[in-house]
Amino acid sequence: MSEQPIIIKQIIGKTVKAIRLKQGLSQEDLAHECNVDRSYISMIEVGRNEPSVTKIFNLCKGLKIKPSDFFMLVEIEYQKIQETSFEDK
């Protein structure tokens, strides 16, 4: 089975957490902005939950970032991992 879905979940979580921390928001703050439970934010950030596109748009609204910018950050991180794994082979 491909590791791609696992990697993408982890990148999404890492990206959400990085933006949240940069903005000085707690998980509780972001959860309140997105109308979800704090544990849901935690599960996303550790890569155990993969948010739907709708939830990603809600997260982006709470993080005050355009979804296109969010996906661009995710894509950049994904490319870095792909390049690193390609170099390892």
Rank of each mutant, 00 (worst) to 15 (best):
E75K: 13
I44A: 04
N35W: 00
S52I: 02
L59W: 05
I56M: 09
N49W: 02
L73F: 04
G47Y: 07
I41H: 03
S39I: 09
K66M: 04
S68N: 13
H32Y: 12
T54D: 15
M72I: 02
N35P: 00
S42D: 05
S52V: 02
L59A: 04
K66I: 01
N49R: 15
R38D: 10
V74W: 09
R48M: 12
I76D: 13
F57D: 05
L73T: 03
V74S: 10
V36D: 05
E50A: 14
M72W: 04
V36N: 01
V74M: 07
E45A: 01
S68E: 15
D69F: 08
V36S: 03
D69A: 14
F70W: 11
V53W: 06
S39Q: 11
A31C: 12
E75L: 05
R38P: 07
S42A: 14
S52C: 11
L73D: 10
D37C: 06
P51E: 06
N49I: 04
N58A: 08
C34R: 03
E33M: 13
G62V: 04
P51V: 07
P67K: 05
Y40D: 07
S52P: 05
N49A: 15
V74D: 06
I56G: 01
Y78N: 04
M43F: 03
Y78V: 01
N49G: 00
I76R: 12
F71R: 00
E45V: 06
E45S: 04
E50N: 15
M43D: 09
E77H: 11
C34T: 13
D37G: 11
E33F: 15
Y40I: 09
I41T: 01
S39G: 03
V74Y: 10
A31Y: 10
E77P: 09
K64W: 00
I44W: 00
G47T: 12
K64I: 00
S52W: 03
L63D: 03
I44K: 03
Y40Q: 11
V74R: 11
G47K: 08
E45T: 03
T54A: 14
F57Q: 05
M72R: 14
P67R: 05
R48Q: 15
G62A: 08
V46L: 09
F70P: 02
V74F: 08
D37A: 15
R48P: 01
D37M: 06
V36Q: 09
C60V: 06
E75A: 13
I56P: 00
A31W: 06
V53L: 15
M43G: 02
T54N: 13
I41F: 03
I65C: 02
L73Q: 15
R38C: 04
A31T: 08
K64M: 09
I41N: 00
Y78E: 09
F57C: 10
N49F: 05
L63N: 06
Y78H: 10
I76Q: 12
K61R: 14
S52E: 10
V53M: 14
C60G: 05
R38E: 14
I76S: 07
E77D: 14
N58E: 15
N35V: 01
V36G: 03
L73W: 00
F57K: 08
C60A: 09
S39P: 00
M43P: 00
F71M: 14
P51Y: 02
H32I: 11
P51Q: 08
N35A: 10
Y78P: 00
I41W: 04
G47N: 12
I44G: 01
Y40R: 09
G62Q: 04
S68F: 09
V53N: 12
V46A: 00
